[in-house]
Each structure stands twice: as structure tokens, then as C-alpha cells.
Amino acid sequence: MLAYVIRRAVAGVIMLIVMSIVTFALFFASPIDQASFICGKNCSPAQKQQTAAAMGYDDSFINQWWDFAEGVVKGRDYPDDPKLRETAPETIVHCEAPCMGYSRERGDTVTNLIKDTFPVSFSLAVAAFILWIAGGVLLGVTAALKKGSIIDRGLVGLSLIAYAFPTFFVGLILYKFVAIKWGLADIPRYTSIADGGVGGWLSSLALPAITLAVFFMAGYVRMTRSYVIESFQEDYVRTARSKGLPERTVTFKHALRAALTPIVTMAGLDFAGLMGGAIITESVFNYPGMGKLAVRASQDFDLPTTVGLVILLAAFVIAANIIVDLLYAVIDPRVRLG
């Protein structure tokens, strides 16, 4: 088990390294010149070269990546200029390990940027996750158990509608009607637990979490429904009935146990993906999360922030994958890790 985790973790780290190289390479391959982008419109070639040298952009691709990698391990100074360290140490920003880089546009280390935005995205993802899993699985099971009834058809129809509505539309409707027009909720503004207590934190999350959950919930209702219906066709459910078990035991002990296993996989991966994927919701509600940060970083051609976010999110997905596989081994005795 431990050996399995270590092996998967090592593979994950290798994957992260490869991803960082690819992200670097994509930026280098793009037609936009970093230095002139920073230097501005009216930049003479000499100024441009100076900027490039100061930022280290004149260095080779490999060296730049290596500096980055070293920074992740050891930490790094920006700018890394010994002369400046002598004369004006206050202008140097030290970025501690693990240093993901320094964003000139934001004027802060990427680590700090992520520290600021991560709690927002994570809170949102957790709240949405709980809503969509609870709602999606419950409604999906209900639909499957009442297969063919009005309840089933209603749920399937509703989930199709919910699935079809774009997130920004749902978000705006909630924002405009529930919060502003009817005043049923506060106008959403992110509040941390430190600022508003648990109650304030939760109520600040309600609308964006619902917005985010609606889309996923719709998918999970349909998925759960089909897994449960499929599971009722299994031979072992027939065996359970032929033993004379009450229908309740057949449903909960035999059919659902097997049906819900694949949902664990889906849920784990969707949760990890959501960490950086709530871009639209964060934008609609103007929440300072990682999704919004990622959009701005790519608009501004902010390489360090982009690389930092890509690696962090990739790490989430990889970790979620490992956790899901471990969970699977716990749930299903046929799965042996090794």
C-alpha cells in the first residue's frame, strides 16, 4: 500500500516536471516577446534589451526553466542581482521555497498570490461539492428507484434543463433575482471564517456554490440514475431477492453499494478539476479565486503565475487520482494495489 503510494507520487512528480516544461515551452513558442511586453509600447531596442537582461529573459530556455526549478526547491530573489543586493536590498523581493516565481504584473510572488486566492476557490469547491454530491446522488437514486414514474421523468427533464443552462446565466439569475431583487440572500461577497465566522463564510458562499453545483448536480443525477438502474439488472441483485431479503436490504446493501462506487471516481476527479475550473462563477460573483487569477494571468501574459497555477492544479488532479484509487481499494475487495 505504502509502496504503491510512493510509486504513484514519484510518477506524479515526474508528470509535474514535464508539465512545467511544456508550459514554459508554450510561452517561449508564442509570438509575443516578453521583454517588449513588460517594457511597454515606446520602448527603444536598448531599453528592451536591458529589461530582458534584468528579467533574465535573454537567457536560454533551459536555463530559465532551471532557475525556476531551483527556486521551487531553494527559494529565489527577484531580481537576482548581486549589485542591487549591495546597493538597494530593499528593492529585492525574496521568494521562499517553494518559490513558483514572481509576478511582475501583480507585483507579488506567485506563492503569495495563490495563498490569497486558494481559500476562496477551495471554499467554493467544497461547498459546491457537498451540494452537488448530496443532491445529485439523492435525486439520481430517487429517479432510478421510481424509474418510469412522473418523478423520474421530471427529474431527468429538470436535470437536462439545468445541464443545458450556461453557468454564467444561472449565476446572473441568482445574483440579480435572489440577491438583489428579492433580497433573499446577501449580495455575495467572499468572507473568510476569520472575518465573518463560520456563518458569514457559509452565507457568503451560498449563491456561487449553488450556481456551480447546479451544473454538476444535473450530470450526477443522470449518471447516478443510470448506474443504479444498471446495478438492479445485476445477477447478484437477483440472488439477493431470491434469498428472500426485504426490498430495502436489496436496494441499500446490494444494489446501491455497487452502483455508487464509480461515482466516487468521478466525484474525486471533478472536485480536483473544479479547483481551477470555477472561472465563470468566480467572475460572475467577482470572487477573488484562482480561476479569476488564472484568466487575468493568461490575459496579461504572466508566465510565472500561469506556470504556478498550472502546476498547482495538476498536483491537485494527480493527488485526487491517487486518493480515488486508494478509496477504490478500500471499497472494492477485488482491487488490489500493487
Partner: peptide
């Protein structure tokens, strides 16, 4: 009918692998 199933009349099936629940021990079942 349920009370008769498994007590007065019971059934065994063609494919014992799929007819047993994979997540529970044989003894449990």
C-alpha cells in the same frame, strides 16, 4: 412471497461469479 423465497423455494444460478456480490464475503452472503 418474500418470506417463502430462500426458505421454501430457493434458486441457484448459471454464473456463480456474477450471482454473488463482489463486495461482500462469501460467509456474509
Amino acid at each position: 412471497m418474500r418470506k417463502k423465497r430462500g426458505r421454501e423455494v430457493s434458486m441457484i444460478f448459471q454464473d456463480p461469479l456474477s450471482a454473488m456480490h463482489p463486495y461482500y464475503t462469501v460467509g456474509n452472503q
